[in-house]
Design a binder for these strands. Structure first.
Lengths: 205, 205, 205, 205
DNA sequence: AATGAATGAGCATTCATTCAT
DNA sequence: TATGAATGAATGCTCATTCAT
């Protein structure tokens, strides 16, 4: 029994490790050369395995990109929910979202490149991207805004979903700019800048 | 003489027409199938010319994408400058920018797809994209904000370039969302929404 | 007009020539290495063209094999009909069929190999092979036998289609054996041997 | 001792069983998908063993096909000899051969497919096929015919080996046709038809 | 300028075989 | 013996680009 379960666990670990290694290699390679210019052989080499082994863990090159996104998005959303749960103030929630968004992506530049650049390279991916975890992420922002509107903290003359997109767009642009500027400055502090405008507006009161 | 100049003009026109036809065909084809999945032969067929003819006007498939961007960006900036020139109020200027941004892209969905999706498909393109007209566009927004700050209309505790990125990011996200939502709603009105938040902030005063 | 038609004819000839060259190369290569072991690159090299050029004339490697069969079978049947037409005696007809069968295949050993060996390598090909020209060939034999039965020359207690298969099988075996025996003996004379038995039977009368 | 010999026997039996299982699986898989389209993994799954285990019993995929032929041919010849031994009349012998040929192959359609189609798929196999048991089989027919000639039952103006090939070719064609016709009719009765012609000839006497 | 036939480098994927366990 | 994960060589086909006409 113990032996069995241990064996199974070990196998699972090895399998997970190799899957993991391929995904990590995929992030590095896609970030460096772009999805269409990356060869499966590049990923295999980077992961330290044979070309064919990739296909024991993924059905296709496409599936690797998908899995990268799915895994990262799941992690991101998990962590987001965990950090947001204890917070009740919607303003604080938005601050946390913005900070997390920029912290997470600046912590792994390769992943950020894949998210900001490679995943956008085709309507097909974008559609799926949109349909999948992205919608969930936007929904978290949207509900925080609804909550803020109910609480009387946020203005009520705007649709929450539009507000959510605006915040997301602003943050997203910060990330893209940061990537393209070769990371000359720290990304997370940009969260405060975005929120200054987003919450307070540009106009002098 | 007359014949010459006329001939030259005619030639220039024909040349321009064919270049133009290829670019238009490129926009349609790239938007429909994505840059990497589009064949030069597709573009040639769409433009009604032979495959080889494409290479009399463009050095490579890449160059077609570049030219599409360059031409559209130049048009866009030209028109922008023209419309902004008579306006003095920085608030009105920002409104004009936002409106033009969404109007222009919603007026040509194929071009919008190429701008929002295909041009983002590689760090390489993004770098070039960034280096080129995009910086100029961002600069126009930035200077409008500087002007507004000097005029005392906009708050001064924010860097103009960051403000510019935030506005750009928000507008950009509107366009991307509109594309992916299959254009179920008119895009230009979103300009007002963005500006409501951007100028006035989300918080209740 | 003349120029046009001449141009068209020239183009057709060139095209036909290249198609022809590929088919001839295919016969040689398939005969030498077997269909599954032949690479498209082998055929291209043998035909003196680039790999990609093969695909301007054929959709796939499979299609080359098919075309080899179709072309040869069509030629064979055409020639058969032409030679059989002036003959009225069904016995002479059968003799002509048998002679032609062995003459044609022994005249082009590579083609014979493809017919006897490579085309049999898969039920899929065999089905198609059977459905296509082979049925037509068998039908020619069958009708000759029917004619002989009506004329009172051939016994009537046998189904013509069965008789046709028996003759075909015997001839086919002669060809296969000849191929596998490295052509140590001339094939055509075997036609007489087959017919001696086929027409007269093995038994002493 | 007892234990040893028993153990050895058991081991041998197990070994034989597994070899047998692989061969049976090979026949099924090759018949269904063709030799080149069959994967070793398919055979392993069909045999209920692991992929690698196949290589404990066979050196290669080729060897499986060879062994299928060798085993079946040996069985076939053994049974043939056994059934022919008590028969003295060469006519009866030929009838027995023809009947057995069709009975055995129609009794195992998968095996028949492998014999008629898959084994013919390459000159290489054909050469080996020819060199091996096939020659032995043809020899049995040949000697029966020699015997008949000596006994004065068969005509003497034909070489026995040619007569043997003719009979074999006719029978072989019956089998191939039966396979390709999806077994719509019983095969064994065709033996009589073949012999009617083979022994008596097509001509009215 | 225009053509489009020809080129040939490039690549995702498969699968027979091996080998550590 | 048995396993099945890992290997890596092998290849049909595509398509950007060239060039003879």
């Amino acid at each position: 029994m113990a032996r069995n379960s241990k064996g199974t666990a070990a196998v699972k670990t090895v399998v997970a490790d190799k899957r993991e290694a391929i995904l990590r290699a995929g992030v590095r390679v896609f970030a460096a050369k772009g999805f269409f210019n990356s060869k499966v052989a590049d990923i295999a080499r980077e992961a330290g395995i044979a070309d064919g082994t990739v296909y024991l863990y993924f059905k296709s090159k496409d599936e690797i990109l998908h899995s990268i996104f799915d895994r990262a998005m799941a992690n991101f959303i998990d962590e987001g929910r965990r950090e947001l749960e204890p917070i009740t103030d919607p303003i604080e929630k938005l601050k946390t979202i913005a900070r997390l968004h920029l912290e997470r992506l600046s912590a792994d530049r390769d992943l950020a490149v894949v998210f900001q650049i490679e995943l956008r390279g085709s309507t097909k991916f974008m559609q799926e991207f949109s349909a999948a975890g992205f919608a969930e992420y936007l929904d978290i922002i949207k509900r925080t805004i609804e909550q803020g509107q109910k609480a009387g903290a946020f203005r009520k003359d705007m649709k929450p979903v539009v507000c959510a997109k605006i915040l997301y767009g602003a943050l997203d642009e910060m990330v893209t700019n940061w990537i393209l500027s070769a990371n000359k400055y720290p990304l997370p502090p940009m969260a405060d800048e975005v929120l200054k405008i987003y919450l307070g507006g540009l106009l002098v009161k």
